[in-house]
Amino acid sequence: MYLTKEKKAEIFEKYGKGKNDTGSTEGQIALFTHRINHLTGHLKNNQKDFNTERSLVKLVGKRRSLLDYLAKKDIVRYRELIQELGIRK
């Protein structure tokens, strides 16, 4: 499996408030970004996998709504997170 417990804890520790803080907006956005990058790589090899494509579109929508929420709450944290993760917009 591409996302182990250790990798997930590492993502939340780096972007969240701690490795057990799975509810922070920044941590969830970072996790979604990791999953989106993985699915994008999968779809480059499997163009006809439409179920994965649908999952990818849903994940991008979820991440976008969380990013919009973060931009409304704290624009400085939003800009820092966008810069760190390399997300466009």
Rank of each mutant, 00 (worst) to 15 (best):
E13Y: 12
E26P: 08
G41W: 05
Q83R: 02
A30H: 02
R88A: 13
G18K: 12
L56Q: 08
R77Q: 09
K7D: 00
T4Y: 01
T40I: 13
L66D: 00
D68P: 01
K73T: 13
L70V: 04
I87F: 05
I11L: 06
T4Q: 00
G23E: 09
H34K: 10
K5H: 01
I29D: 00
K17R: 06
V60H: 10
N51H: 09
I87T: 07
M1F: 13
Q83I: 05
R63K: 14
L3G: 01
K73W: 08
T33H: 06
F12H: 02
K89I: 14
R79P: 03
V76H: 11
A9T: 00
E53I: 03
N20Q: 05
L70G: 04
L39M: 10
E10Y: 06
A71G: 03
R77L: 12
L39A: 08
L43H: 01
A9L: 01
Y69N: 08
K48F: 14
N51R: 09
R79E: 13
S24R: 11
R77P: 03
M1R: 11
T25G: 00
Y15R: 07
R54K: 10
K58Y: 13
F32A: 07
L43W: 02
D74N: 13
N45D: 11
Y15N: 01
K89T: 13
S24K: 13
A9M: 00
I11Y: 03
G23N: 14
R88W: 11
E84K: 14
L67P: 00
G16P: 04
V57P: 00
L43S: 03
A30E: 00
I36L: 07
R79Y: 08
F12R: 01
V76F: 09
F12E: 00
S65V: 05
I75Y: 14
G61T: 07
L81Y: 03
H34G: 00
S24Y: 14
M1E: 09
I11N: 01
K73R: 15
K44D: 13
I82F: 05
R35F: 05
Q83M: 02
L67M: 15
R63T: 04
T25V: 15
Q83Y: 01
